[in-house]
Each structure stands twice: as C-alpha cells, then as structure tokens.
C-alpha cells in the first residue's frame, strides 16, 4: 500500500508539473509573439529606434525564459529561437529589409514550441 501511495503522489507531482509547464510556456510564448508584432509595427512605421529597443527587450526576456525553460524543454529548440532573437536587434537598428522574414520565422518557431507543450490531440499523437 505504501508503494501505491508513493506512486499516486509521484503521478500527482508529475501532473501538476505538466500543467504548470503547459500554462507557463503558453503564457510566455503568447507574450513573445505579441512583442514580435510590436517590433514589426514599429519597423513598418519607420521607428527603427523603437523596434531596436523592443528587439533588445525581447532578446533579454527570451534569455531569462530559456534559463528556466531548459529544465522542461529541449535545449536545441530553445537555442535556435535564441539565435533568431539575437539577430533581430541588429536587423532593426540597420533598417534591414530581412527583418520581416526573421520575425515571421521567429513567431512560427515560438508558436510551434507553444503548441508542442499544449496537450492538443495532434501534439499527443
């Protein structure tokens, strides 16, 4: 009976951790996607300084997020997104026409990351 109790407790902990990971990753990814939209808006409006500042904030926030998320998520996915984030501030400050391509790719990867942690049927299967 002790083993059953320990097993039930472990399963409960795993379930709570799973739900926490899902909610936390989801919330943070939504915030990052919104930040990317904000960068694009500033860039399209010609406000390169605003876009650069937001890109730097995004890079910093992502780095903080990655340090904790690396305990729950595969590191290679997180590093790939970090690579894209680190390119954004340079592209924004230089007014490069490649910025929308990078932001689209970044948004797509963050959305995939979020979907991977959400228990949709397609994610499970």
């Amino acid at each position: 009976m002790t083993r059953v109790k320990i097993s039930t407790a472990i399963l409960a902990v795993l379930l709570v951790s799973g739900i926490f990971s899902w909610v936390w990753v989801n919330r943070n990814c939504m915030n990052f996607v919104n930040s990317i939209y904000a960068i694009e808006e500033n860039f399209v409006a010609g406000d390169t300084d605003g876009a650069t500042k937001k890109a730097e904030n995004l890079e910093r926030d992502w780095s903080d997020f990655r340090k904790t998320a690396s305990m729950f998520l595969r590191n290679d996915k997180l590093l790939e997104i970090e690579r894209l984030c680190s390119s954004l501030s340079y592209l924004a400050s230089s007014g490069s026409e490649d910025l929308p391509v990078y932001t689209e790719e970044l948004r797509h990867m963050i959305t995939l990351l979020r979907d991977g942690e959400t228990p949709y049927l397609r994610s499970i299967l």
């Binding site: 795993l14 951790s17 690396s70 305990m71 729950f72 998520l73 595969r74 590191n75 290679d76």
Partner: peptide, 11 residues
C-alpha cells in the same frame, strides 16, 4: 543526448 532535460527524461 544532453539536450534532453533530465526531468523530461525521467518523467
């Protein structure tokens, strides 16, 4: 594979 977190491995 060290890219896989221990938590994800043992869960």
């Amino acid at each position: 594979d060290v890219d896989i977190p221990i938590v994800v491995g043992v869960t």
